[in-house]
Design a binder for these strands. Structure first.
Lengths: 205, 205
DNA sequence: GTCTATAGTTCGATAGAC
DNA sequence: GTCTATCGAACTATAGAC
């Protein structure tokens, strides 16, 4: 592995170009969707020509998958650095922090909302990605609720999997409404939902 | 106005053709989205040629708007025939019935989910339609919650507008997850949310 | 009112020079 | 590694016969 003081190797420079293209593609896909966003627009955004983009990615579809995986990793990293892993009410608070942060990154939110909508169509290249993503998110959120039940913070007789699906649903649904009308504050509304769920899960006195 | 026993007038036959095209377009847009669904596919689905479709609609965009308004009217009619207008818990139960019914019409649900995702992009022709639609739905749902507060069924110190936004968010979010994984039952999960919200809104004993 | 034919674009991908 | 040039496909919309 090259030391940070060394002149960047050819492949390291290549990685930087790839990153710039991924950033540009995220912007274009957020604004116009995958089908509606031409490679030429990605190229312009990355200060290149369209064949230049395809020198770094075999196809537009390849670029799409690279964008999705990159942005997904960034979002996941954020959660992992929070109190998410503690489970229970702390995990719900961590999700609230995430929603508040998302409110400062409309482009990222819009990209995922546009692409998940497109990908619901059976033949969309990102369909499998999103199916997997939701399965993983539901699994992890279910575990966070269960952790709260195991510790006695939450009632044990609630269906953790259903509640996990509801949490993710609220996040997605609020994003849609926020993107259509930016006046709407996601974090404030999500806080009410978290409050509602905590009361619902409070063990009987 | 022609009597029902009369031979259908030319314009009545024209209306039937328009309806058939709208039905065909709804199928195609649900499967591939607006941008991804060619007029030729709509034509095939309606057993016509592509210029035949454009004889009845000035442009693809015109057809899209006709599809949206038609399908929206159908959905709204269903709600109006339920206990929705009573407000309060009865209105929430009416929404649950709607969610259960939606579970039997995946094509309709998919069409709206795909199109709302696409339309979040600023330049999409359906953007204004969906912005208005959510504003209207939020307004009507807010009123339903307030009606419950006025009657004393619900606590008066809850923010009806926020709760309305949450209800719509859950519906949309569950639809996304259901379309990506049809194993997930929307109605069962929505019922848990309704239960949670009713407890949250129960007046203090 | 529906057809065939086609104009006029736009786009993804490839070829090949530098 | 980036460019210019271009191919070939797909799509909306129009023209005009029947």
């Amino acid at each position: 592995m090259p030391r940070s003081t060394a002149r960047p190797s050819s492949s390291a420079r290549g990685e930087r170009t790839r990153s710039a293209i991924i950033r540009a593609a995220a912007t274009v896909f957020a604004r116009h969707g995958y089908r509606g966003g031409p490679l030429a627009a990605v190229a312009t955004e990355a200060a290149m020509t369209q064949p230049g983009v395809l020198h770094h990615f075999a196809s537009k579809e390849d670029l799409l998958m690279a964008v999705l995986e990159q942005r997904d990793r960034e979002g996941t990293r954020r959660l992992n650095e929070s109190s998410w892993a503690d489970g229970g009410g702390a995990a719900l608070d961590a999700l609230h922090d995430l929603v508040a942060h998302n409110g400062t990154t409309p482009e990222l939110v819009q990209m995922f909302t546009v692409l998940v909508g497109e990908s619901v169509a059976a033949d969309h290249p990102a369909r499998a990605f999103f199916t997997d993503r939701y399965e993983t998110l539901r699994f992890r959120t279910t575990r966070a609720v269960q952790r709260g039940q195991d510790s006695g913070e939450f009632r044990a007789d609630a269906d953790a999997a259903t509640l996990a699906a509801l949490v993710l649903a609220v996040m997605d649904g609020l994003q849609i409404q926020w993107l259509l009308d930016p006046e709407l504050d996601m974090a404030t509304r999500f806080a009410v939902f978290v409050d509602m769920m905590k009361r619902f899960l409070a063990p009987p006195a």
